[in-house]
């Protein structure tokens, strides 16, 4: 009995792969990124393609922009892919990043129940948020320090309102799940367009405010600074950053989702400046 367990254990460990990886010429690249990148399905296909085109293996953790930047700031990842420009600039100023490259954008949309009880349709985003607060209409916030959450809090700040009270619900969950909650509660919420398109057929919420310049959502890839964190896989991080801005990847991003949703989920921006996107 014990010998049988021993034999099983031995082959189990082999199946599990080598227990300690070598540290020179590491093929593993650790990416910390945002949930919308994974929920849209883009992460899985780009990861597979990246592994096919380069000698590297991608280990991606989708945790939200706040957590991804925190992981990068400890040197616990090689590269981050995030969408919160102000926080990214602070991250760069603290010397945690080496290269920061613009990759793509999409935009946020304000969603609400079909009846639109706070009458926000067609308003600009700031007036719409003020109307929701004035009507005390239920608003679902991500509440998880993700890029979307940071973006939403910034919008509120610009309206001069500090949202609080029973109408302002912090769901503390991923984007896809938040849409389900907003639909079930007949509430307003802010979503990236990609996740909304992916879930459109399953929820009862519609776009009430869109195509307003403050709603542009920009994604950057940042390599973690190898001077500050000598343990990072700098070559692998650079390979991933270069891959994200390469012409072929950019073409792929432009086409991603068109077959399924009738419109692209993201717009490639490599080589542009932040000002050009806005």
């Amino acid at each position: 009995m014990i010998r049988a367990f021993g034999a099983l254990l031995a082959c189990a460990l082999v199946a599990c792969g080598p227990l300690v990886q070598t540290s020179v010429n590491r093929p593993e690249v650790l990416l910390a990124t945002t949930t919308s990148f994974q929920d849209s399905g883009l992460l899985d296909v780009l990861a597979a393609d990246f592994q096919k085109r380069t000698p590297y293996r991608l280990r991606a953790t989708a945790v939200g922009t706040g957590a991804a930047l925190a992981i990068g700031a400890r040197g616990d990842a090689d590269v981050v892919f995030v969408h919160a420009p102000n926080e990214e600039l602070a991250y760069m100023q603290q010397g945690n990043g080496e290269r920061r490259l613009l990759v793509m954008h999409n935009d946020f949309v304000l969603l609400g129940p079909p009846g639109d009880p706070a009458h926000v349709r067609g308003k600009n985003i700031f007036d719409a948020l003020r109307a929701i607060a004035a009507a005390r209409a239920t608003f679902i916030s991500r509440g998880d320090k993700s890029g979307t959450d940071i973006f939403e809090k910034n919008l509120w700040k610009q309206t001069g309102i500090a949202p609080a009270g029973p109408w302002y619900v912090e769901a503390a969950t991923g984007m896809g799940q938040t849409l389900t909650v907003a639909s079930e509660k007949r509430a307003y919420t802010l979503s990236d367009r990609g996740t909304f398109l992916a879930r459109r057929g399953q929820i009862e919420a519609e776009i009430l405010v869109q195509r307003d310049p403050p709603l542009i959502n920009v994604y950057h890839v940042i390599t973690v600074d190898p001077q500050k964190f000598p343990n990072v896989n700098a070559a692998g991080a650079n390979a991933f950053a270069d891959y994200m801005v390469s012409a072929e990847t950019q073409r792929f991003i432009a086409a991603f989702g068109v077959d399924k949703y009738g419109e692209p989920l993201f717009f490639p921006d490599a080589g542009k400046s932040d000002a050009e996107v806005h």
């Binding site: 227990l19 990886q21 540290s23 593993e28 650790l30 616990d76 990072v232």
Partner: peptide, 20 residues
């Protein structure tokens, strides 16, 4: 198992080993 942690040298974050 994070690189900044005591077992960081194992490089186990995001692996099956860490799950085991």
């Amino acid at each position: 198992v994070w690189r900044s942690g005591p077992f960081g040298a194992l490089d186990w974050y995001c692996t099956r080993q860490a799950m085991v």
